[in-house]
């Protein structure tokens, strides 16, 4: 039963995130496929029976089909509208199995002071954590860590690289 639930979530997540790779999405989404998949999945998540439309495809919910990276605007720790659905899906996974644990890894771009950037990365991780908890995850399931600017994924010194580095990575730890 448990596996079935997870699998159902996985399917929905796969539907939603299939178009979103681990690169930075366009801040103003013009990709219609992306939008359509997103709004399609929305009704499932927020409907009376969020798992009703699911179908078992296996229990590899953390195997990588779900986008695990949430990007942020400059100087902001607010989860952008284009990522609230993704966070909601992770919340659902956590809410449905209290044994599942995640670590939220917050990151900042390279500008400014390093320890202050640790603070900015943590603020972003906490922003995702609160959103997960509001939607049913419990505090004991979530650990946060901030790497500040110490673990960039993009190495350039331009806005494009900085945008890829301002992120929270959701990592399943069990």
């Amino acid at each position: 039963m448990l596996n079935y639930k997870l699998a159902a979530i996985t399917l929905m997540l796969a539907l939603f995130t299939g178009c979103a790779s681990n690169t930075v999405p366009d801040p103003e989404p013009t990709d219609t496929t992306y939008d359509a998949a997103g709004s399609g999945a929305d009704t499932d998540v927020y409907g009376d029976d969020p798992l009703g439309g699911g179908e078992a495809i296996g229990d590899d919910y953390s195997a990588g089909e779900l986008t695990n990276i949430i990007y942020f605007d400059f100087d902001s720790s607010e989860v952008r509208a284009d990522f609230t659905d993704i966070v909601a899906r992770h919340a659902l996974i956590l809410a449905n199995d209290s044994m599942i644990r995640v670590r939220l890894e917050g990151h900042a771009d390279e500008r400014g002071s390093r320890e202050y950037n640790i603070g900015l990365g943590e603020r972003r991780a906490q922003s995702v954590r609160r959103m997960l908890m509001i939607q049913g995850a419990s505090a004991s399931q979530i650990a946060t860590v901030s790497f500040g600017e110490e673990r960039p994924v993009a190495l350039g010194g331009d806005e494009d690289s900085w945008a890829q580095n301002r992120r929270v990575e959701i990592k399943y730890t069990n």
């Binding site: 320890e115 640790i118 603070g119 943590e122 906490q126 901030s146």
Partner: peptide
């Protein structure tokens, strides 16, 4: 030191 605690308040 800077401590953040579980709620991340540095």
């Amino acid at each position: 030191l800077t401590l953040g605690g579980i709620d991340g308040n540095l």
